[in-house]
Write a protein that binds this DNA or RNA. Structure first.
Length: 437
RNA sequence: GGUCCCGUGGUGUAGUCUGGUUUAACAUGCCGCCCUGUCAAGGCGGAGAUCGCCGGUUCAAAUCCGGUCGGGACCGCCA
């Protein structure tokens, strides 16, 4: 055995370049197969796994220990066609760094993950170590990084706005309230008002941050805390410009996955979405299409139902060969107060939703930027202007025509990996019944 | 908030409709033994579940009924 003085750690992914060399690897005991005279240990680190061949006496440090024990291994990298990756580590010596004596609540080193979603989430701290779960959340990191890249290179400024507020921002009752030094306070349901204020400072801003909704929704696509990808931009010619930016942004984000972690895209069997020329239809046109194609009369409905969205998605898929479709011009009364009514037809607003594979993914609009118009709308909706002082001040002192949108990041990931439930693409989901872990 | 489904060893399921040879089965995991090339290893053996909980019907309940707690799906609402 040739022994070097001190070996620094090598990641398993770099081992093929170290053939014939003595190396030290560190990671988790992913699995072990004992044959008596020859034994195989699978070591996992952040970059992957590798097989280590152990003599019987080298198993002793692992007596009584379970998988997920943290180990250090010193050995020689050898070419070996019989090993999965063509190499393995031999003449190895094992050192236990952190012993594990408890048995895992479920197996995380098999091809398929067996536990139900509920059981998985109860044990997410170890369940997330499962390879495909790692893949999902590595890709999530790529989405966020690409979101930032794209916007920063287009002169947007990243902002971080407060999540504690003294007023229930957008007028809804669906906010979490709590006591803040003896005063009532709320968790913000979106950064909407702050990002608009910041258009008055930087013209173009974006934020990645949590949004809180106190809705008791029991669905596969809602969370009570989700990570919102917010964008807001000033000096726009119209909402079309905002929609163009959104499509360019999403294309960039999704392409980034295949560039940064193609192996994860492959492991998850992700079908990268088709963009094509993303169709744009108005809310009323969508309802007419549903009547003609699916025979359901929705003309009296002020909003789209989940079934409507599935139909619209199917129509876009079959008629336009795309996974995306914009629905624009929603009834003004159904949108938030800051949405700009269409000057040609104020019953409808310059607003849009982007439907991705039959599910609402993004909501946006051109905003009211005129102070007097904003005041009239707030008063006509019975809202108290006193609750919006800071917001209104920004408009009182000059705001350009502006618009923006918010992407539900967990939903984007959910549809990308074709998960049945948004909780599968959220690390530690918060829903009506789940507050831990 | 409304409607509908489901709770069986650590995990995933079968058994429930049609109550009784069920000592509650199978797979995986765990423990022990065997095996020099596994890679979802294999073979043999073992431990592990009073069938979510409470009550009722019955000679007899995992199985039927009621309640309760937990989970899931759809709708409403949204991202």
């Amino acid at each position: 055995m040739t022994e070097t003085a001190i070996l620094t750690r090598t990641l398993t992914r770099d081992l093929p370049e170290k053939r014939g060399e003595r190396v030290r690897i560190e990671g988790w005991l992913h699995g072990i197969r004992k044959f008596g005279a020859v034994n195989f240990l699978i070591l996992r680190d952040r970059s992957g796994t590798v097989q280590v061949v152990l003599e019987p006496e080298q198993l002793e440090p692992l007596d009584g220990l379970q998988v997920e024990t943290v180990v250090g291994v010193e050995g020689t990298v050898e070419e070996e066609p019989r090993a999965g990756r063509g190499i393995e580590v031999r003449n190895a010596r094992v050192e236990v760094i952190t012993p594990v004596r408890d048995v895992l609540p479920f197996e995380i080193n098999k091809k398929v993950l067996k536990p139900s979603l509920d059981v998985f989430l109860n044990h997410a701290p170890v369940g997330l170590r499962y390879a495909k779960k790692q893949s999902i959340f590595r890709l999530y990191s790529d989405l966020l990084a690409a979101f930032r890249d794209y916007l920063l290179t287009r002169d947007f400024t990243e902002i971080a706005t407060p999540k504690i507020a003294g007023a229930a921002t957008e007028g809804g009752a669906n906010v979490f309230s709590f006591e803040y030094f003896g005063k009532p306070a709320f968790l913000t349901q979106s950064p909407q008002l702050y990002k608009q204020i910041m258009v008055g400072v930087f013209e173009r801003v974006f934020e990645v941050g949590p949004a809180f909704r106190a809705e008791e929704h029991y669905t596969v696509r809602h969370l009570n805390q989700y990570n919102s990808l917010d964008v807001e931009m000033g000096f726009i010619a119209g909402q079309e410009e905002v929609m163009d930016l959104l499509i360019g942004l999403l294309e960039y984000m999704i392409n980034a996955l295949a560039v940064r972690h193609p192996e994860d895209v492959e492991a998850l069997g992700i079908a990268l979405p088709r963009f094509g020329d993303v169709p744009r239809i108005t809310f009323r046109e969508a309802q007419r299409m549903i009547l003609e194609r699916y025979g359901e009369d929705r003309s009296q409905e002020p909003d789209l139902s989940p079934q409507d969205e599935r139909w619209i998605g199917e129509w876009a898929d079959q008629e336009f060969n795309t996974d995306f479709i914009f629905v624009t011009h929603y009834p003004t009364a159904k949108r938030a107060f800051y949405s700009l009514p269409d000057p040609q037809d104020p019953e409808y607003s310059l607003s849009f939703d982007l439907i991705f594979r039959g599910q609402e993914l993004v909501s946006g609009s051109q905003r009211i930027h005129n102070y007097e118009q904003l005041m009239r709308v707030i008063e006509s909706r019975g809202m108290d202007p006193g609750q919006f002082e800071g917001y209104l001040e920004a408009f009182r002192f000059g705001m350009p025509p502006e618009g923006g949108f918010a992407i539900g990041s967990e939903r984007l990931l959910m549809r990308l990996v074709d998960a049945d439930n948004i909780r599968e693409t959220t690390l530690f989901p918060r829903d009506v019944n789940r507050l831990t872990p």
